[in-house]
């Protein structure tokens, strides 16, 4: 990919489009937008080489506000457009912006297959556990019992685990961050951008109108350190105000322990590059009420990349066989009438 010449440094402003942002004041999307606009100049990728593709929903308005190329497509199908675009133009940096309804309900099939194929795209899934644009119905990530416009007596559906779906889809990069954690999000987004292959970032995002406080246990500064496990590759898994707690494996079950009691060498050590997703799976199951919620990179492995393999096959074929259309016309038995 071409990089921006040193003397033309892009800034956040270069990525702000002329459209008025129409999300609700206080919506978590505003924070995500700000971080993307701040992070992208750091990549050194020219603005015209970046494409944002979204589906339908609040999150999917995102491309309109980014001064890059952008397509606001149809519900759930953004990964399919992204795949086609990458096959036509492998040199472009393609981002898919989706939500829990767009990506996991109507577009669940494409979400899973884009990750499985390892198309070189970055998928940002804004998870607010509710349908916002259609005014407050439960989503595939809403908890059992959630009272919403369409579940007045409480949702009777078991929620899906975003990270678990990504693991099951054999994703090569899986991460999670929170809309209001500016620095953390910036780091995770940058890692996603730099990953070869499909990168999934689940962003815990607050819908201030229909599901306010869904992620309060993470965003509340007083509770944060108790409830968040920051994942760092090669580091033991510690959390709590002073890092006094840790995660240990007891048989096949993770458990929360006091580090002072068991000693740090008893703790699980994070390995985002593990070839098997076992550890990532343990982490994907953690959350309230008994565990902290892991944030950061769950998994980042090297795997063959669909769009690269496709172009390799094309180049190999081109090296082996001249681009002779006439020879193709004459395949099989031919005869001449004079």
């Amino acid at each position: 990919m071409n990089t921006v010449p040193e003397d033309i440094k892009l800034t956040r402003k270069d990525f702000v489009s002329d459209q008025d942002v129409r999300w609700c004041p206080g919506c978590g999307n505003n924070a995500i937008l700000a971080q993307m606009q701040k992070m992208l100049p750091e990549l050194g990728v020219p603005r015209e080489k970046i494409v944002m593709i979204s589906g339908i929903g609040c999150s999917s308005r995102f491309p309109y506000y980014m001064n890059t190329y952008g397509v606001h497509s149809i519900h759930g199908r953004a990964p399919t457009l992204a795949m086609g675009l990458k096959c036509a133009r492998p040199e472009l940096q393609v981002w898919v912006i989706t939500g829990d309804g767009d990506g996991l309900a109507i577009g669940g099939n494409h979400f899973s297959h884009a990750l499985r194929r390892n198309v070189d795209i970055n998928i940002l899934l804004f998870n607010n556990q509710v349908y916002g644009l259609t005014k407050g119905q439960y989503s595939p990530t809403s908890p059992l019992g959630a009272k919403t416009q369409s579940s007045p007596d409480g949702s009777i559906e078991n929620p899906v685990n975003t990270i678990g779906v990504a693991i099951g889809s054999e994703a090569s990069f899986i991460a999670r961050t929170v809309d209001v954690f500016q620095k953390h999000m910036s780091g995770v987004l940058k890692r996603a951008a730099e990953h070869r292959g499909a990168a999934l970032v689940e962003i815990a995002q607050n819908c201030i109108i229909f599901n306010d406080g869904a992620w309060a246990h993470l965003s509340d500064p007083d509770k944060r350190l108790e409830n968040v496990l920051y994942l760092e590759h090669g580091k033991p898994m510690r959390f709590g105000k002073k890092g006094e707690k840790g995660i240990r494996l007891n048989g096949f079950t993770p458990e929360v322990v006091e580090v002072a009691e068991v000693g740090e060498d008893q703790l699980l050590v994070h390995d985002e590059r593990a070839s098997e997703p076992t550890l990532a799976y343990f982490l994907s199951r953690m959350g309230p009420p008994h565990f902290p919620t892991p944030l950061g990179v769950f998994r980042a492995i090297d795997k063959p990349v669909y769009s690269e393999l496709l172009m390799q096959q094309v180049r190999t074929a081109q090296a082996q066989r001249p681009p002779d259309l006439d020879a193709l016309f004459r395949q099989g038995e031919t005869w001449v009438v004079s």
Partner: peptide
């Protein structure tokens, strides 16, 4: 969808 993406890409 991928046909649209490819056409968009030229």
């Amino acid at each position: 969808g991928s046909t649209i993406g490819a056409a968009y890409g030229g």
